[in-house]
Write a protein that binds this DNA or RNA. Structure first.
Lengths: 229, 229
DNA sequence: CGGCATCCGGGAAGATACTG
DNA sequence: CAGTATCTTCCCGGATGCCG
């Protein structure tokens, strides 16, 4: 005679009119914001998300996608034949959480406990460029770069003091970097010379290596917050 | 032969170099961000936090304050005699999370599921002003308002297209509103006429009521996101 | 294989009672 | 007033298995 175990999340909500509190009701559950992060550069399949979010189990991913879909942040779409696969993508409103995400990343990167040597996903690196890009240093520089992480291909364009990463389309870029995400972090934020990374066989720079070198100079090392006051 | 039960939160971290992921390690636990919210307008005592965060139990509050203190976001301070009470306050770096908070609130307020009629804390209302303030509508208007919620007294100043709420110091304001936080929400966002609220006995406007009326016009009704696309 | 349901162990959240 | 101790509930994470 047990009652059905309806997923009654109402007890876990904050019951607070504060906008931020409602934001936490929407994306405050564990993994939710990271699922959104992986969708921020375009639609992805269930398996892609599992692969990129190390430590997230399938059942929790299912729950999060259901919740985010119910909230109107994510929608599922069936690609037309012959692909005919199901993908998840952000709604227009879902994409608009990006500035929150960027600012949170910028704030947390100043944490004394932040460890930039941990593993990092391809999407994270691309989004981190938006967080850490110093438009003042870039001035009116204009360039396009390609980043190839196995199957995942990104194009980063800089123009008019703005940086914009996208998926795909790197035929016409100034330079292409073929590597793994953590090595990009080492080069851009750790200021490890790309030649050293190339010598280890972990990175290949095709095209104008000078462009990549200038690109690296557009990024500050995130400076830690002091614990005083 | 049981192992000691060290508080091993390492299993709950994301192990991700992404700045935002680390941000969630810092403030992603339940209630953490709302504790920070209540500290955003200045130091508070343990009991104050309990009172303002309805639904948060004492043990969880203790855990959050410990965690946030260990992260360098919150510090505990003993006020000098004769007060001699302990208060919690944000560190300088802790205060810098405010833009994240403001943007999250602005984004979530557009959720179809957001219910502005729920209870709201005094600090939340003050911070919501920063989220919803429309500098374009305010133009070059300059005014100061006092808000009195029982013991909690706030001063809101508008000048040069900027709005700034602070605690205390309302001797010289243009108008003072004595009421409860939800009724401010009703007046400012629900556009319920203050006279109607005053007639119910829930609000008293002391001073230039016209200033409060103009103030209300500086705020948009948050418009919902469409669920399309 | 992609997507999702089910079962289980550990641990965080929540409520209550208790202590200095 | 400021927490601590204890107990219950339930979420998270891992494993397994079903189904198209």
């Amino acid at each position: 005679m047990k009652l059905e175990k309806v997923t009654d999340r109402s007890g876990r909500k904050y019951h607070d009119a504060c906008g931020a509190a409602h934001g936490l009701d929407l994306v405050g559950e564990r993994w939710a914001l990271l699922v959104i992060r992986e969708l921020m550069m375009g639609p992805r399949r269930f398996g892609d998300l599992r692969k990129d979010l190390c430590g997230l189990s399938a059942n929790v991913l299912t729950q999060r996608l259901e919740g985010l879909e119910a909230s109107g942040i994510v929608r599922r779409r069936k690609l037309p034949p012959p692909a005919s696969v199901q993908v998840y993508e952000l709604t227009d409103w879902g994409y608009e959480i990006e500035p929150v995400f960027i600012l949170l990343g910028g704030w947390a990167a100043r944490s004394p406990a932040h460890d930039p040597t941990l593993p990092i996903s391809a999407v994270s690196i691309m989004l981190s460029f938006k967080t850490m890009f110093d438009a003042r240093r870039a001035g009116d520089a204009a360039m396009t770069l390609g980043f190839v992480f196995g199957e995942d291909v990104f194009r980063v364009s800089i123009a008019g003091g703005r940086l914009e990463p996208r998926r795909g389309g790197i035929e016409d870029v100034d330079v292409t970097v073929v590597t793994q995400p953590p090595l990009v972090a080492a080069a851009v934020y750790g200021k490890v010379p790309p030649q050293a990374l190339a010598a280890d066989g972990g990175m290949e720079v095709r095209g104008d290596a000078g462009v990549f070198a200038r690109f690296i100079d557009f990024f500050d090392l995130p400076q830690k917050a002091s614990m005083e006051a």
